[in-house]
């Protein structure tokens, strides 16, 4: 989030530091696989299948189309819950950050939701709404909304009143006030909420699927857990983590760069 371009190291430094960093990163990844293979050797291929076996599983399941289908279903749930949580959480945070009354009214709800364990929200959603898609997505969204609200409220409180005054003088419409004055100031907070939101949501989605859905990555992991197929569990996990990394690098980071273009200007 921070702009590090102005903190560039001296000119000779990158040549030495970058390879060293790359090397450290590569070593770390290599160590991960080494530990994994050590586990295979220690526990045996049934309890801890080798990386090669897991990758072979991923390739086979991808070719059959099953893995992409399940991934797609889970991803759709992540996206739906994410959009709902961000929209409601941002609106509530903005309201609570701007209005003392809204904050007083919202505070107890916020504390309640912040401290409600994810599992309880999920179970109650399934009991009250039924074992439906709506219940699943709502349960995930409700788990995330209070975190978004708290972050955005912080941002709303930090907004520059001078710009708001300027906008009032020049009679900005309500829509302009929101899109031209408020949201750009909230952008770093929205980005932070989005990032931690994705990380939290995709973990909870798996639990929701495990408890009350008959498809998706969470259901598959549940299924393979009962079959004691560790290779499949690791395969689904790795594939899903890879997809979330792609979302981070291909969607979130470019969006952030684009949104903070105006910061780059040098005098």
């Amino acid at each position: 989030m921070a702009d590090t371009s102005s903190l560039a190291p001296p000119r000779t430094a990158p040549r030495r530091i970058v390879p060293a960093r790359t090397l450290a990163g590569a070593l770390s990844v290599a160590a991960f696989f080494a530990v994994w293979m050590l586990g295979t050797w220690w526990m045996g291929p049934r309890l801890c299948p080798s990386p090669a076996a897991v990758f072979a599983f991923i390739v086979r399941e991808t070719a059959s189309g099953e893995l992409p289908a399940e991934l797609g279903i889970t991803l759709a749930r992540v996206a739906a819950a994410f959009v709902i949580a961000m929209t409601i959480g941002t609106a509530a945070g903005l309201l609570m950050g701007r209005s003392r009354l809204a904050n007083t009214i919202g505070e107890p709800w916020l504390i309640l939701l912040l401290n409600a364990p994810a599992l309880i929200v999920i179970v109650l959603a399934y009991i009250w709404i039924g074992l439906t898609e709506t219940a699943a997505i709502m349960a995930v969204a409700i788990n995330k909304i209070p975190n978004v609200t708290v972050t955005i409220r912080e941002g709303a409180r930090a907004m520059d009143p001078q710009l708001t005054e300027m906008a009032r003088i020049y009679r900005f419409s309500r829509r302009q006030m929101l899109t031209e004055v408020m949201l750009p100031q909230l952008q770093p907070y929205i980005a932070a909420a989005a990032r931690s939101g994705i990380a939290l949501i995709w973990k909870i989605v798996l639990v929701v699927e495990l408890l009350g859905r008959s498809n998706g990555v969470g259901f598959q992991i549940h299924l393979y857990f009962q079959l004691f197929d560790v290779r499949a569990i690791l395969g689904y996990t790795l594939a899903f983590v890879a997809v979330m990394l792609v979302v981070e690098f291909a969607v979130l980071q470019p969006w952030e760069r684009r949104a903070s273009r105006w910061r780059g200007g040098a005098r």
């Binding site: 001078q162 710009l163 005054e165 300027m166 003088i169 020049y170 900005f172 302009q176 031209e180 004055v181 750009p184 105006w262 910061r263």
Partner: peptide, 22 residues
């Protein structure tokens, strides 16, 4: 009315032309 404040109070995420247009 229009106001020129002590600080220019331009929206930093909008270009100069957009600031005037808004």
């Amino acid at each position: 009315i229009a106001v020129a404040f002590q600080e220019p109070r331009l929206l930093p995420w909008r270009t100069v032309a957009q600031n005037v247009a808004l």
